[in-house]
């Protein structure tokens, strides 16, 4: 089906990505890795296990969104991804953000997405509408982007962290911050939400044509 020129451009893209990966490994990762000692593997404590479980749920959900051919399974993967991210926020002692994530994302956005799925695709041929173009292109893109982000994240000497504080409720602090220092963004957000409310209704309604 694909023309020869299309195939050639894919091969060229693959070669480009491979060359870029080689460059990354030789020029960036190896010099950085030479100077530092391998991290010592300590014993697995309970927080570690909890973190790895949450991260696994999050990334498995994200992988489901990216790879599943059925849009409903994608929505299910999004559910697990958002749940895992909420758990990670709890792990980072950001309780208010975690609860907001649960209420707004899972209670609001996910339900909205599910409604859109039900309203737009005929359930019987649900697979047809979600065929992902170019599994190969997706893999290529992942291989090209992920190493850059991971190298930046892991090789940058981030500012020496002050020891994370003990668990404390953050809601009161966030409320004070929203109504003092972040008052203008807070009010602007309310205007944005109002505009969204009106705009979504105007866009999505069926026009009743007066004959």
């Amino acid at each position: 089906m694909r023309t020869n020129a299309g195939k050639l451009s894919w091969v060229a893209a693959a070669a480009l990505v491979a060359a870029f990966l080689g460059y990354m490994i030789v020029e960036v990762i190896l010099p950085a890795g030479a100077g530092r000692a391998a991290p010592t593997a300590g014993a697995l404590t309970l927080p570690d296990v909890v973190f790895y479980a949450l991260a696994a749920v999050t990334l498995a959900g994200a992988g489901g969104v990216a790879l599943s051919r059925n849009i409903l399974y994608s929505a299910l993967g999004l559910l697990f991804c958002l749940l895992g991210a909420g758990g990670l926020y709890v792990f980072l002692s950001a309780d208010f953000v975690a609860v907001t994530q649960l209420l707004v994302y899972i209670g609001g956005v996910l339900v909205l997405v599910l409604f859109a799925v039900m309203l737009t695709s005929r359930i019987t041929e649900i697979n047809v509408s979600n065929t992902s173009f170019g599994r190969f292109g997706g893999i290529l893109m992942f291989v090209a982007v992920a190493p850059v982000l991971l190298a930046v994240a892991l090789l940058t000497p981030w500012a020496a962290a002050s020891a994370p504080g003990a668990l404390a409720p953050t809601t009161a602090t966030i409320g004070n911050a929203l109504l003092t220092r972040w008052l203008l963004p807070f009010e602007l957000a309310s205007v944005v939400l109002l505009a969204t409310l009106v705009g979504a209704v105007v866009i999505a309604r069926k026009e009743i044509k007066a004959d």
Binding site: T58, V65, S74, A85, N130, F142, A146, L150, L154
Partner: peptide
Amino acid sequence: VVGALLFTLGLVTVATRRNAVG
């Protein structure tokens, strides 16, 4: 690392999907 992988997977999803909801 988790954040970077989430971002990359989202980017791949945006690039490879034909379904607007996806």
